[in-house]
């Protein structure tokens, strides 16, 4: 009976191909990079040598150049993530609550359309829009809104616009799913109990959307920190991101040892951000449970939902409350 069946499928046997693949084509090569980071570059024709192991490359990583690029990258990715959040929260709320249910599918599909246009091509679109001699600049000057040509391209502002644009859908999706899952019933219940619209939004909808907020922020922050293409197309000299420095070591300098050390630092940093976010999320959840408690008939609170980096395999309250929607497991592109 059931236990026999569970024993078969619940057994890890079925996951062996996945295990094998991920270990062989992800864990092993990444481990190799970590190993290389302790080596050195002996001469111009050799990318690395492991004859002498040292932490020397890590000392080289912590150079003023690396640190200043690192700070700039961090600033761009934090501002970018927050801006995406600010843009996406009202938008996702609108899509999940205000738009008639029959239209939601179509509109959500439209949000995804940029995904299906190559992200470099989209970025090139921005390059044309922001050009000082481009049609937007000329139109703005024509109607007297600008006294001189638009001066945004190849500046930090251009990079910021570009990354916000490229990663916005990754924020909208999990937020929409979370707000949608939060359920009309809960909101109605809250309103029935006399809570105002804003109060309902801040005390019911938003807390229930917390898992979506967290997965959205991670989905935007992680690839954004590693992206250097958007920035190099739009930012010019202001668009040097940390990923570019790593790539330079491999593609120009042919110094795998130093490049590996940089990559390890970048990876550990990203991981640290994820762990901190996860911890923060736990705290926020606890606080919400404590302070923001609204007496609702169902009494369900959304747990961190399955699927994103931050969380664990166990399910969530949302799923129990509304079995039809299976939570915020958004595996967004890693563009």
């Amino acid at each position: 009976m059931t236990s026999r069946f569970r024993k078969f499928l619940g057994d890890s046997a079925l996951s062996f191909p996945t295990w094998a693949y991920m270990l062989f084509f992800f864990a092993l090569p990444v481990a190799l990079v970590m190993w290389y980071s302790f080596g050195f570059k002996p001469d111009q024709f050799t990318t690395h040598s492991m004859e002498q192991l040292s932490l020397g490359r890590y000392r080289e990583v912590v150079s003023p150049t690396f640190l200043s690029v690192f700070t700039a990258t961090l600033r761009i990715s934090i501002v970018g993530t927050l801006a995406c959040l600010v843009i996406a929260v009202p938008f996702a709320y609108w899509l999940a609550v205000k738009v008639p249910p029959g239209r939601r599918g179509l509109l959500l599909a439209l949000v995804l359309v940029p995904f299906w246009t190559n992200f470099l091509v989209r970025t090139l679109g921005w390059q044309i829009i922001l050009s000082p001699d481009g049609f937007v600049s000329e139109a703005l000057q024509g109607i007297g809104l600008l006294g001189s040509p638009l001066d945004i391209l190849y500046s930090r502002a251009a990079v910021q616009i570009g990354v916000i644009y490229n990663y916005l859908p990754l924020m909208i999706l999990p937020l929409f799913v979370a707000m949608d899952s939060a359920g009309v019933q809960l909101r109605e219940a809250s309103a029935d109990l006399g809570a105002g619209k804003w109060r309902t939004f801040f005390q019911v909808t938003l807390p229930l959307a917390t898992p979506g907020v967290i997965s959205g922020c991670l989905l935007v922050f992680i690839p954004l920190t590693g992206d250097y293409i958007t920035a190099s197309v739009l930012g010019g000299a202001n668009g040097t991101m940390i990923g570019q420095l790593v790539a330079n070591q491999f593609q120009n300098a042919q110094n795998w040892a130093l490049g590996s050390a940089m990559a390890v630092v970048l990876m550990l940093f990203t991981l640290a951000v994820v762990v901190i976010t996860a911890l923060l999320a736990l705290v926020v959840k606890a606080v919400i449970k404590y302070v923001g408690r609204v007496e609702l008939p169902t009494g369900q609170h959304a747990g961190p939902d399955a699927g994103t980096a931050a969380d664990l395999p166990e399910g969530s309250g949302v799923r129990q409350a509304e079995p039809a929607v299976s939570g915020t497991t958004t595996g967004g592109p890693h563009a």
């Binding site: 090569p29 992680i222 590693g226 590996s260 970048l266 990876m267 664990l312 395999p313 890693h334």
Partner: peptide
Amino acid sequence: GAKWPVLLTALLALTLVTPEVVDGIAMLPW
């Protein structure tokens, strides 16, 4: 209660938090 799902999830999640450029430089030498 089994341990392997946690490990597998962690391994898969790790691929998601790894910056793409790291994937790239890891795979090329491999």
